[in-house]
Write a protein that binds this DNA or RNA. Structure first.
Lengths: 118, 118
DNA sequence: ACAACATATGAGTATATGTTCATATGTTCA
DNA sequence: TGAACATATGAACATATACTCATATGTTGT
């Protein structure tokens, strides 16, 4: 029972398998890194707020009832992950979603939650 | 500039919007909690391993080259999130994915990463 | 250039979290 | 029942991380 089958891991599911090939370890680390960004309530709330409209830092900190600095710090994380982009409008920095996948990932997460409630 | 528009936040996107209605704050906390589970490399690797086949704890710890205890601890997290289920087979506990959303969320994350590489 | 405003950033701190070690629980077979 | 195996669990420790405070950077209008 000590056979070590490392290396390529074939996906054995034929139908309904969304992933044709299982990702290598390095990619999995990147994936974890990405989901870690989604895994914070402040950042999730920022993303949700930006889902409806683009917003500046000040309005975000108002809507989430948090300090400007905290929001700014988290926006930096979101930005460096490519989930959010910023454009300057005078003194303001206007943030908006930078990837349609954000919405899809969001939706799937919600479906999971709803699914588990029943 | 001190108007506080709390409460329901309508989604203003008409087309291509996967989320018909923006979730309330409580749901957003649940969402963050869910993604937090995905946001760890060990757990992601476990999920990836289970994507091809169901596996027992021992084999998982071999494939990930980690201690049995660490794997077991993380399996508990995955289990309590409803991402993974376990059935007993003799002395072994056999783990498998408990939700198709896992694959979809995975796939979306991968697409985001691929998209950002270009 | 200066004042007022908006955002970004670094240091410090408190908390959360993942791994290890030791041990408990549970199962099989003789 | 007892030994061997497989997994689960609790405590302890080290690391990661989110917020706050103070301050720097950047922009606009006078």
């Amino acid at each position: 029972m000590n056979d070590k089958e490392n290396g390529a891991i074939p996906c054995e599911q034929d139908d309904g398998c969304v992933i044709s090939e299982l990702p290598d370890t390095e990619t999995l680390y990147d994936l974890a890194e990405l989901f870690k960004v989604f895994g914070d309530s402040t950042r999730i709330r920022i993303l949700a707020a930006l889902m409806g409209k683009e917003m500046c830092v000040y309005h975000l900190s108002q809507e989430l009832e948090m300090g400007q600095s905290a929001i700014s710090h988290q926006l930096r994380v979101l930005r460096s992950s490519g989930l959010v982009k910023a454009t300057r409008n005078g003194k303001e920095m206007v943030y908006s979603l930078d990837d349609d996948h954000v919405k899809t990932i969001f939706a799937q997460g919600l479906e999971h939650i709803e699914h588990k409630k029943n």
